[in-house]
Design a binder for these strands. Structure first.
Lengths: 171, 171
DNA sequence: AACAATTAGTTTGTACGCAATTTAATTTTT
DNA sequence: AAAAATTAAATTGCGTACAAACTAATTGTT
């Protein structure tokens, strides 16, 4: 019995005539909850970053750099646009990040012959090798989270659904 | 029919004594889930930021600045340390942020008479006035989230519990 | 073919976020 | 009371994030 998905509990929209003080109060509480949810997401992201820092410092990577390496380990020779699409980051963020990874000797940036506008991002031998040293990272994150598979899955999916709505709202 | 997505499965790392290939595989999947959860949190935080930007730009605030204002609207005359404790931010982040809010005429920074090490952050009249213009922000966030009270509450609490574990893990 | 529109990436400028160091004030120890 | 330790902010340095403006390559339109 999955509880009517559209039950309009929200008492929403009563700009004009207020139904009752009680409903207005409940509505205000709901609004506060939204803010609190956002803050929970925000501060959890910062906390994750703190854990990742400890795990990634030995590899010389930041978390966003690690994300880029994950993309490349999965599929080498990607364009900046594709990386941005996968990670929800724009080229203004990625260009300097990729240059740092190139300077660190982990990847190479070269223009696509077929379309010179595009940049082909390819791993170097060193970049491929780093993958092995990075094997322990998920273990460290897993133990820091300390959640069961079910919880993990549910939380991830709720967040992704939320992100979708937020992206839509931001047009 | 595009290649069974879960076919090759990777046969993850058999470094020490693995109980069984099946268990090892399930374990590897779990590790991947942790990474995905982190990415979900990370990208949802960025998406929230995008929505907030639209709502806060007219007020001339960023999201972290809005958080500081929320603290001050609730309890004026706080120290930097207290703001940092509430928002999980350190003085290296807050000092320049507060200076910007001061330059914008929203607050005043002055040393505590009783303890000159501490800074008293107090709202100006303009800072207090801004509160009214900010009344519509929660409404905008609420509609962008589009969640019901129960979901909101559950998600918030799961995230806060997770953050607690992450903070502990990071010592 | 010529020119406009689009696209991919880069650059510039602003604002976090945090580690590490520094400065100044207060507290603790001796 | 003097010296040592602690504390609160500020400063410095590095790496995101993203808007806006810019450059160069490709596509489309006439």
């Amino acid at each position: 019995m999955p509880a009517a998905r559209k039950a309009p509990k929200k008492a929403a929209r009563h700009t004009a005539a207020e139904p009752s003080p009680l409903a207005a109060e409940a509505f205000a509480d709901l609004l506060k909850l939204d803010l609190q949810l956002c803050f929970a997401v925000y501060s959890t992201a910062l906390a994750f970053n703190g854990v990742y820092k400890r795990l990634l410092d030995p590899l010389g990577l930041t978390y966003p750099q690690y994300l880029v390496m994950l993309v490349l380990w999965e599929r080498d020779g990607v364009s900046v646009k594709e990386i941005g699409r996968l990670l929800h980051l724009d080229s203004g963020t990625l260009t300097p990040l990729l240059k740092r990874l190139e300077a660190a000797g982990l990847l190479q940036r070269s223009r696509d012959r077929a379309d010179e506008r595009q940049l082909q991002v390819t791993l170097t031998a060193q970049g491929r090798t780093l993958r092995e040293r990075a094997q322990t990272v998920p273990l460290g994150i897993g133990s820091a989270c300390g959640l069961q598979a079910g919880e993990l899955l549910a939380l991830r999916d709720q967040l992704l659904a939320l992100r979708q709505r937020l992206d839509t709202a931001a047009e």
